[in-house]
Design a protein around this nucleic acid. Structure first.
Length: 536
RNA sequence: GCCCCCGUAGCUCAGUGGAUAGAGCAACUGCCUUCUAAGCAGAUGGUCGCAGGUUCGAAUCCUGCCGGGGGCGCCA
């Protein structure tokens, strides 16, 4: 939340009068961590003191008295503290006004901003090969991509969610081989897909004994399952983009022609190479193998040409697993070779998710599928669990522990807060207490510390969403939602809303307060893709 | 060898330039005749991997080292 405009204005004026630049990048008006340091605090004196050759506390004193003289709205007192911080204490009226605004804006409007500058963004994520069920890591990075999309949408971006389907080449052949071997009752080799799902598919396969045909059929079936698994997690894609379609449309050849025209390809050892070493990669890369097949990279560059130059996305965010880290420099080089500013392509790497029980491998089929984890914990818990920490953090899941905790999972803690508020609202109605309209309620009756604390947390949301968006870190929303839920539970314990001997006007003010909290929880949970139940 | 990520309480993780470092789980003590105890309150628990550097100020930025994970294909 930005500081009250009058306070910002007064501070700027004060700084200017002292010959200081209010737009100095390191100068901040921010909320201190502890309430003992005021509602807002400026570090201007610390930043500027050296240049002035005056002790910081002295500068701070001058700033303090100038701001005080300007008497900005809501300002109660100013103090100089620590090494030279100027701390501002505001009247509660500031918080009451903020709450009022939140209630006016509601679920739709609150914490909605426009950072987009009109950008169309594509986020490509999951994109797991259709050769087996999704694993837990796909769910982790999938929740990340989808929540990032939701957050960016709330910040005004036009977002397309896309899944790149790897439905071509050696994998499909290998899948087809595995299927046919299973069907014929033979052993699947070491380099085949050994999971039991292959046997299940083999039993259903009615097509000819053609490797590619069987492979494509199986991939199609698997993709259907992937789609339904993802939808259990509230992940829905706008576009499923087929790699085969890129190859069959001749787009790969067109792309290579384009690169050739730019003088960035050459032939050697019967293969076609990209001069990627000249574009930041550690070496040159093969685009067309000596057997005439395009490499994965060639298809990927053609795909990114489609993203940037055909469909015209302003910005593309690719979410990959860290095991694909090696292909990043090549892809960036390829994009640059197309003449696209590589700054328009962001690649976020999700660190690996593993199980305490041991390593997972899709080929060997001994992994815990995302589906079974969802069966185990429920979709909300899986989604929230995956959005608790940064994707830069490698995760080791201890299933026993997670299962044991699932009844005391953070997800219930948060949802319970939302359900409790709904319950209060139901109770009020049952008692015949109707909420008066917003222009009739006197929010200034909210003076208890537990009430004010709640508003202080609630008003952080817009800034949290903005930060989560620009840092591409959805888990910041999770952190905030947990804090709000905790603050609410504490409030709930301390103060009654309806009934008891609470005066009617206070009940009204508190009903609106908890509605504000409900709005915050609802928005936060929605951005995380977690449901907000009205009862539990 | 080179590249990326991580190292914070017993465990899982927040905090990434501000003033006494936070939460959940585990362990301890209290709180339900009152709007949902899936909750609340209190106490316990930390050389922020190590060593330098930058800064008025570093868990946060820079360098080196140690430890863990991932990657360096005419595989995808």
């Amino acid at each position: 939340m930005p500081a009250p405009p009058q306070l910002q204005q007064a501070l700027s004026t004060a700084l200017l009068e002292l010959g200081l630049d209010p737009n100095e990048p390191k100068v901040r008006l921010s909320r201190p961590a502890t309430s003992g340091h005021g509602d807002w605090s400026s570090n201007a004196a610390l930043v500027c003191a050296k240049r002035l050759g005056v002790p910081p506390r002295e500068v701070a004193n001058q700033i303090a008295s100038k701001v005080e003289a300007l008497q900005p709205a809501h300002l109660k007192s100013v103090e100089v503290a620590g090494a030279g911080f100027v701390n501002f204490y505001l009247f509660d009226s500031w918080l009451h006004e903020e709450l009022q605004q939140i209630l006016v804006q509601g679920e739709e409007g609150y914490a909605r901003t426009d950072l987009s500058k009109g950008e169309r963004v594509q986020i490509e994520f999951v994109s797991a090969n259709p050769t087996g069920p999704l694993h837990v890591g796909n769910g982790w990075w999938g929740a990340y991509g989808d929540s990032l999309a939701r957050i960016m949408e709330r910040c005004g971006f036009d977002v397309t969610r896309e899944y790149y389907v790897n439905d071509t080449g050696g994998q499909i052949r290998r899948l087809g081989e595995s299927l046919l071997k299973r069907k014929a009752g033979q052993q699947v080799g070491e380099d085949g897909y050994q999971g039991s799902y292959v046997a299940e598919l083999a039993a259903q396969y009615r097509g000819p004994d053609d490797t590619m045909e069987a492979g494509r059929w199986a991939a199609g079936r698997i993709l259907e399952n992937i789609r339904s698994t993802l939808s259990r997690l509230n992940i829905v894609f706008d576009e499923w983009f087929s790699q085969a379609s890129i190859e069959e449309s001749g787009a790969v050849q067109e792309t290579i022609d384009l690169l050739d025209k730019r003088g960035l390809v050459y032939e050697e050892d019967g293969a076609i190479w990209l001069r990627s070493a000249a574009l930041g990669d550690s070496r040159d890369r093969v685009l067309i193998k000596s057997n005439g097949d395009p490499t994965y990279l060639a298809g990927d560059i053609a795909y990114h040409r489609n993203k940037f130059l055909i469909r015209g996305f302003d910005r593309v965010i690719d979410v990959f697993g860290a095991d694909h880290h090696g292909q990043v420099p090549s892809l960036l080089a390829g994009v640059q070779a197309l003449g696209v500013d590589p700054g328009r392509l962001e690649i976020r790497l999700g660190q690996m998710v593993s199980l305490a029980e041991g390593k997972m491998s899709k080929r060997q089929g001994n992994f815990v599928s995302l589906d079974s984890l969802i069966d185990d914990l429920g979709p909300d818990a899986v989604r929230l669990l995956s959005l608790m920490s940064s994707i830069d953090q490698a995760t080791t899941l201890d299933l026993d522990l997670v299962r044991k905790q699932s009844m005391e999972n953070p997800v219930y803690y948060i949802q319970y807060a939302h359900a409790r508020i709904s319950s209060i609202q139901r109770f009020a109605q049952a008692m015949g207490v109707e909420r008066v309209s917003l222009d009739k309620v006197d929010l200034s009756l909210l003076t208890e510390e537990a009430e004010l604390r709640l508003i202080r947390v609630l008003i952080k949301l817009p800034e949290v969403v903005i930060e989560a968006c620009s840092d591409r870190e959805p888990h910041k929303v999770t952190t905030w939602v947990r804090e709000l839920a905790g603050t609410f539970h504490s409030f709930y314990h301390d103060l009654r809303v309806v009934g008891g001997d609470v005066p009617a006007e206070i009940t009204q003010a508190r009903l609106w307060l908890v509605e504000g909290v409900r709005i915050g929880l609802f928005i936060g949970l929605h951005l995380l893709g977690v449901s907000a139940p009205s009862s539990m």
